[in-house]
């Protein structure tokens, strides 16, 4: 099956005027009895075990969302989440939320040592945790306000706004930025 990304891209854009030529085509998402996500595409074909992913999870999370099949082939491209009918948008957001695990760090409580590997104790939006930082290169400044930390297991932690951190956390973070 040859997937042409461009025509797929039109599927979800019900409200998008730019793709009006082919007309809106509905597609549906639901979970089957085994808890797998099932997509019924514009041609009525059923794809089981699909995955909803963001193309720009950090820089532009609400635009550019793809639904891929189990092999990673793109089935549907949604240019803009906000352009979708609200129930569908909500459903997709729920799916994304289930899939994405990027705790947001609210406070840095302790960094065990000034040299890596160091153990960090942090308070996140999902509760308190600690992780091991392998190298200072794993702390990335995304832009002026945000930073992304990847721990030894590849789990990512986001700092949404460095300015909002308390003084202690900022002092601990300072040398990595």
């Amino acid at each position: 099956m040859e997937n042409n990304g461009r025509s797929q891209a039109e599927l979800g854009n019900k409200d998008s005027a730019a793709n009006g030529s082919t007309g809106p085509r509905p597609f549906g998402l639901h979970r089957d009895a085994w808890g797998r996500l099932v997509l019924i595409d514009a041609y009525g074909r059923q794809h089981t075990g699909v995955d909803v992913v963001r193309a720009f999870p950090l820089s532009d999370p609400r635009r550019g969302i793809a639904i891929c099949d189990a092999e990673g082939r793109e089935l549907v491209w949604l240019a803009d989440l906000d352009a979708l009918p609200p129930p569908l948008a909500q459903q997709i957001e729920e799916e994304l939320a289930k899939r994405e695990f990027v705790p947001i760090i609210r406070r840095i409580l302790k960094v065990s040592a000034p040299v890596e590997p160091s153990e960090w104790e942090v308070e996140t939006d999902r509760g308190r945790t600690s992780f091991v930082l392998n190298s200072e290169d794993d702390v990335h400044e995304l832009d002026a306000h945000r930073a992304l930390i990847t721990d030894a297991h590849g789990i990512r932690y986001l700092i949404a706004d460095i300015e909002q951190l308390d003084a202690t956390s900022r002092r601990l973070l300072e040398r990595y930025l």
Binding site: R6, P57, S59, D60, R73, H140
Partner: peptide, 28 residues
């Protein structure tokens, strides 16, 4: 623009493997 970037990646057959990366197009 992001749309142009995605279009270029599609044409270069890079789009799908990029989506498989944990941060998509934002992967370092």
């Amino acid at each position: 623009s992001r749309e142009e970037i995605v279009a270029a990646a599609r044409a270069a057959r890079a789009h799908e493997f990029i989506l498989r990366l944990p941060c998509g197009y934002d992967s370092l």
